[in-house]
Write a protein that binds this DNA or RNA. Structure first.
Length: 258
DNA sequence: ATGGTGGACAATCCA
């Protein structure tokens, strides 16, 4: 099973080229974040015509998550069940092929001193509670993917000394992330891509960031042990950077031998 | 240098 995560920064702006990428790469599941569109305007017909099933939950202008899948998911839900704090447009959950897949767009946090950063920390705390109440244990086959807006180690940013502290790279956010991870997730990305300088995001606003290696690893693929042991590879595809309407995020893919 | 670019959407907000 091939699972890919992609922050689209508008599914409508990326759609023509995204569909081409799907045909060429053929993942079983594409988890998308920042669709930035209301459900009634979501371009589902184009995706279905391309041979993919699609489920989504969005809002006007911001947030929004979706799953594009080759087969129809067995179950689909959005949000953490608390119906508050933007959980519905930041968390999707499907069950497919015997695997549970959680797709999250974690709040960015804006500034360390802001209420938005506290919201981010609390959102991660709620996410841990969601895993606890949804799954009996990490013996279940669970994958957690998405734009997590956390660089959990110094290796995950290009200049740790200069960047520390940042809403995506500071002790509070790393602690919050680690608390969620401690549910029982293993870092499938790092297992297969241990080299320094392997990133998933390069800021639009930094001139030639990709060429200069000024990236971050904030898009993740993690899995519980019974699934992590079956992971065979992971890759980052920077092709969206070359698109007519480039994206600052990349396609991050993991393959599982199931 | 308090910038830069890109998306949504219609003046700014968000990343």
């Amino acid at each position: 099973m091939k699972i890919t995560t992609f922050n689209a920064n508008s599914i409508r702006a990326r759609l023509p080229i995204l569909l081409k990428w799907l045909q060429e790469n053929n993942p079983d599941v594409l988890a998308v974040q920042e669709t930035k569109v209301r459900d009634e305007e979501f371009p589902h017909s184009e995706i279905e015509d391309a041979g993919y099933n699609v489920v989504f939950c969005g809002e006007k202008s911001y947030n929004g998550v979706a799953f594009l899948t080759k087969n129809k998911p067995k179950t689909v839900s959005f949000g953490m069940g608390d119906d508050e704090g933007e959980s519905n447009t930041r968390l999707g959950h499907i069950s497919i092929g015997g695997v549970e897949i959680i797709n999250t767009y974690v709040p960015q946090g804006r500034e360390l001193e802001s209420n938005y950063f506290q919201f981010k920390l609390n959102w991660l705390k709620r996410l841990r509670e969601y895993f606890d109440k949804t799954f009996s244990s990490a013996k279940k086959k669970v994958v957690w993917v998405g734009d997590l807006n956390v660089a959990p180690t110094p290796q995950d940013v290009h200049d740790p000394k200069r960047i520390w502290p940042h809403v995506c790279f500071c002790q509070d956010v790393i602690d919050a992330f680690e608390d969620v991870r401690a549910f029982g997730f293993e870092d499938v990305f790092r297992k297969h891509l241990p080299e320094n300088g392997t990133f998933t995001f390069w800021d639009y606003r930094v001139k030639n960031a990709l060429q200069r290696g000024l990236g971050w690893r904030i898009d993740h693929i993690l899995a519980t042990p019974p699934l992590a042991v079956k992971s065979v590879s992971c890759s980052v595809d920077t092709e969206p950077r070359t698109w007519e309407k480039p994206s600052d995020h990349t396609f991050v893919t993991a393959k599982f031998d199931l």
